Simulated scan of single mutants.
Amino acid sequence: MISEDDKRLERQLCFAVYATAHAFTRAYKPLLDKIGLTYPQYLVMLVLWEKGCLPVKTIGEQLDLDSGTLSPLLKRLEQSGLITRLRDPKDERQVIVSLTKTGAATRTEVDSIMMAMGNAVGYSMEDMASLRDRLHLLRANLASVE
């Protein structure tokens, strides 16, 4: 039997994860404002900085975003001069996303953003890695229920 106290909102794991995700977004905002990115755009850029050019579908899979959410993000990044989107000459159905020189150069900001967020979190690198791994496991467990 689950106690009434354990049913309270602040005791729910789902709410703790939800509220923490919002807190992360708020903490990132001033850092990302300096380089003209929103948090979702930053995630797209992280994928591209790591992998280079990729099909839109692959970016969506990496970030667990559907095309209806991803397409406007990519459009704004392209308007900002950070990426290009071109049809794949081998398969016209696919759109390939690539970094521009400006987009690639923006990667230099990642170190300062990560250090600032590391300080904000207040955990050691080992603690952050452990928490990240546990969250990945939690996500995998939840995905297996679908």
Rank of each mutant, 00 (worst) to 15 (best):
T58N: 10
T58Q: 12
I59C: 08
I59K: 07
G60Q: 06
G60E: 04
G60T: 09
G60H: 06
G60L: 09
E61S: 11
E61F: 04
Q62I: 09
Q62D: 15
Q62S: 14
Q62V: 10
Q62R: 14
L63E: 00
L63S: 05
D64L: 13
D64V: 12
L65C: 03
L65T: 04
D66H: 12
D66F: 08
D66T: 09
S67D: 12
S67H: 13
G68L: 08
G68V: 05
G68C: 09
T69Q: 13
L70C: 09
L70S: 10
L70M: 07
S71Q: 07
S71T: 14
S71E: 08
S71F: 06
P72V: 01
P72M: 00
L73A: 03
L73P: 06
L73K: 02
L74K: 07
L74T: 03
K75W: 00
K75P: 00
R76F: 03
R76N: 06
R76M: 06
R76C: 01
R76V: 01
L77D: 07
L77F: 06
L77Y: 01
E78L: 00
E78N: 02
Q79C: 00
Q79D: 01
Q79E: 05
Q79N: 06
Q79T: 00
Q79W: 02
S80Y: 09
G81T: 04
G81V: 06
G81M: 05
L82Q: 04
I83T: 01
I83M: 01
I83C: 01
T84Q: 08
T84R: 07
T84C: 05
R85Y: 03
R85T: 05
R85C: 05
L86N: 15
L86C: 11
L86A: 15
R87P: 12
R87Q: 11
R87C: 05
D88T: 13
P89N: 13
P89K: 13
K90E: 15
K90H: 15
K90C: 14
D91I: 09
E92F: 07
Q94M: 14
Q94Y: 14
Q94R: 15
